[in-house]
Amino acid sequence: MVNGFPVATDRLYHPATHMWVAISGGIARIGLDALGIETSGALAQLSVPAPGAEVTAGRPFGQLEAAKFVGPLVSPVSGTLVAVNEAVLADPGLAERDPYGAGWLAEVALAEPDGARPGLLAGREEITRWFAAAVDDYRARGVLAE
């Protein structure tokens, strides 16, 4: 837990979009971190394209809709969607309850499995430092319940 929110430090993060990436064997599993979900409000719908779609790092590939908010889901990596988590699409609350596990969004076959990952944070120290600052920022902006 960092400032009251869980964060998994065994993966990469795109700080601006709160997307996490867990890479294994050329496949990247991606999802939203707990803070990204919490600050959106009560989730109503998650939309992602069907497997086969091409995704590009830094570009929208889906949409998150909450009670009073809608925003793009931005891919942290480039490649081809090979799986989407139908369970979380049917029940977006799954992402709220288990953001780093059963609440994953999609799996991407990486265009460059061994390429560099610019813009992604890695390592416990770097991740927790960023995450703590992000929680403080959201609190200062009045987005988090208190």
Binding site: G41, A42, A67, L144
Partner: peptide
């Protein structure tokens, strides 16, 4: 209302 809960910080969230 959910908007009220967000404004009063009784629920996390934001407006688009």
């Amino acid at each position: 209302s959910m908007a009220s809960a967000i404004a009063l910080r009784m629920r996390s969230g934001r407006f688009s």
